[in-house]
Design a protein around this nucleic acid. Sequence first.
DNA 1: GTGGTCTAGACCACC
DNA 2: GTGGTCTAGACCACG
Lengths: 121, 121, 121, 121
Amino acid sequence: MRSLNLTGKLPIYMELADKIEELVLDGILEQNSQLESVRELANELAVNPNTIQKAYSELERRGVIYSLNGKGSFISGNIEKLRDSKTAVISGKLEKIVFSLKKLGVSKEKILTVVDAVYCK
Amino acid sequence: MRSLNLTGKLPIYMELADKIEELVLDGILEQNSQLESVRELANELAVNPNTIQKAYSELERRGVIYSLNGKGSFISGNIEKLRDSKTAVISGKLEKIVFSLKKLGVSKEKILTVVDAVYCK
Amino acid sequence: MRSLNLTGKLPIYMELADKIEELVLDGILEQNSQLESVRELANELAVNPNTIQKAYSELERRGVIYSLNGKGSFISGNIEKLRDSKTAVISGKLEKIVFSLKKLGVSKEKILTVVDAVYCK
Amino acid sequence: MRSLNLTGKLPIYMELADKIEELVLDGILEQNSQLESVRELANELAVNPNTIQKAYSELERRGVIYSLNGKGSFISGNIEKLRDSKTAVISGKLEKIVFSLKKLGVSKEKILTVVDAVYCK
DNA sequence: GTGGTCTAGACCACC
DNA sequence: GTGGTCTAGACCACG
């Protein structure tokens, strides 16, 4: 049985949604492939089906998955658009972070060092 | 009367604490100077005193302020340490952000462009 | 093999019924001609026979087709009446839509422009 | 005690959300005014609080209301944008409707008559 | 079997 | 007091 690795900072359904979204964006879950059913996953993770349902609803809202009544839930076939919008969001966060560091007196070179480090890892 | 400029994403006491911390780190509130009393500030901001109290507690926990029983709350005299720890925290966030962007297929050059843009602003 | 072009907003049996009704009203399926059997169509569309059955029931309910026990299902011979009732239904929807737009502050002229555009297309 | 006037076509939480949105767009509920609490409304309408919660979540997602933890839920202060997007959606529906009527052989003049009738009402 | 809705009742952080 | 999350268990339409 897989477990959830909860951070506890976010509600369960949100962490689950984020995790699945990440798997999709990383290409680990293939486009149009079927997800586990609400009940299956609820059973596996020892979580209430309603919570899984909420996670799936959130993912559908984000366009990460689509659900067919009576058939199941499936990974979206339109991931590029998703990836673009997510990139835009995270770039926004990057700007804020860099701005904060600048205000704290961190030099540009120091930041570039961090960026380099991550990219060489 | 000053107002709060709530973003609504965080609890009020947290936003208030963040704001005060920022004022301290920016040098606008001087070291060892006295903060307004809980009741004064609550009155000014039209906020429940409990909320102010919680914000002050949060700031004390972070080491941004210290409280003297019966005298009031004061800005910490050791801001450098504060600035360092905050820098460390934000650098950690920076790493995560950069890692996410790398996974999304964003090139290092694109990131450097964003960093440059912020530093030239 | 024909496929379904599912929109996903409606249940499959409903989308199928709508599509067949449209073919009838457009005169593509001729009056009193025989429809494919439930099993044939289910096979062609790779859909559960129950779903086809339900679509046919829906069409019979609407008066679009009629079924003869042991012989099969046939397009209704009285399409004009059908067209009239459908026109009435859609006109009702039109009224609601126009009323909504009026309440939203859209001028009559703006609506007429839209109507014109569709009719000149 | 107010009642719900359920149509039964949509889930309760959706009908409720639609109804409240309508009241907001009609200007009956004023901007930034406070809504009844989840529990109050649940009690009034004899519906489970979770259902009301879901309706409020839906409205927040649409930008019709905003919720402050521990304070309550409030009508959005930015209704114009809402009205515009809703107008766009309904205009799209109008096009589809008009197109259907055209295909059914309804003349443009007949449609204009209906539009006139609504606007003179 | 599937997703989705609803109820009942508990718990939490926040104000 | 408030909104929000979660569990447990039931019911429905759909395929």
